[in-house]
Simulated assay, not measured.
Amino acid sequence: MESQTQVGITFGPTYLLKLYLAGAVGGSVFYLVHHALLAPSSKGKHMWSFDPSNVPGLGASGAVNAVMLLDIFLFPKKTLYFDFIIPVPAILLGIFLIGKDMLRIMEGDNRISGSAHLGGATVAAIAWARIRNGRFRF
C-alpha cells in the first residue's frame, strides 16, 4: 500500500502543498458561498442577510478532496479500495464521491459539507486541466 499519493511522487512536495492549500481555500469559498446564498434562502430569509459568524466550519475536506481527486483524474485506471476492502477503478470511485457530495447538497445534509468537497474537486479539475495543457505551476 502506498503511503504517498502519486501526485506527490510525480510533482514533488512543493506542488502537493500548493494543491493542498488551494483545495483548502477552494473548499472554504464553496462552503461559504453555499451557506451565504443557498441555506438562508431556503428558510425564507433574504439571501443578503447572511451572518458569517453563525456558520460553523471545521475540517480540511476540501484540501484532501483536491489531492485525492487530482490523483484520480491523473490515474483513472489505478485500482483503489472502497472502504479499504472492495477494489474499484479510480474513476468509478471519483464519480461516486462527486455524486455523493452533490446528493449531500441537494438533500441539505449539514453533517458533512458537500460544498467544501466540491470546492476541492473544482481545484483538482483546474489543476488537472493545467497539467494537461503543459502548465505544471499552480
Rank of each mutant, 00 (worst) to 15 (best):
S61M: 13
G62N: 07
G62Q: 05
G62P: 06
A63E: 10
V64C: 08
A66E: 00
V67C: 10
V67T: 13
V67S: 09
V67D: 11
M68D: 09
M68H: 12
M68N: 13
L69S: 10
L69A: 07
L69E: 07
L69C: 08
L69I: 10
L70C: 04
D71S: 13
D71P: 05
D71W: 02
D71C: 07
I72G: 02
F73Y: 14
F73C: 07
F73L: 13
F73Q: 05
L74D: 08
F75V: 05
F75L: 05
P76L: 04
P76F: 03
K77N: 15
K77Y: 12
K78P: 06
K78N: 12
T79K: 08
L80M: 10
Y81I: 06
F82G: 02
F82T: 02
D83W: 12
D83T: 13
I86A: 14
I86C: 14
P87N: 01
P87C: 02
P87F: 00
P87A: 00
V88T: 02
V88I: 07
P89I: 02
P89E: 05
A90L: 00
A90V: 00
I91C: 08
I91M: 08
I91N: 05
L92I: 10
L92M: 13
L92R: 11
L93R: 08
L93E: 09
G94Y: 00
G94E: 01
G94T: 04
G94D: 01
I95Q: 09
F96R: 11
F96N: 10
L97V: 11
L97R: 05
L97Q: 07
L97P: 02
I98F: 05
G99Y: 04
G99E: 03
G99P: 05
G99A: 08
K100A: 12
K100Q: 09
K100Y: 11
D101S: 15
D101N: 15
M102C: 15
M102A: 13
R104A: 14
I105K: 03
I105W: 03
I105T: 03
M106G: 12
M106E: 11
M106L: 15
M106V: 15
E107I: 12
E107M: 13
E107Y: 10
G108S: 07
G108I: 04
G108E: 05
D109A: 12
D109K: 12
D109S: 11
N110K: 15
N110V: 14
I112G: 01
I112A: 02
S115L: 01
S115C: 01
S115W: 01
S115A: 11
S115F: 00
H117C: 10
H117P: 01
L118Q: 03
L118S: 00
L118V: 03
L118G: 01
G119S: 08
G120D: 01
A121K: 00
T122M: 08
V123G: 06
V123L: 07
V123E: 04
V123F: 07
A125M: 03
A125D: 00
I126H: 09
I126Q: 09
A127C: 06
A127R: 05
A127P: 02
A127H: 03
W128S: 10
W128P: 04
W128H: 14
W128M: 07
A129P: 02
A129H: 06
R130N: 14
R132G: 05
N133Y: 13
N133C: 14
G134M: 05
G134H: 06
R135F: 09
F136H: 11
F136M: 09
F136C: 05
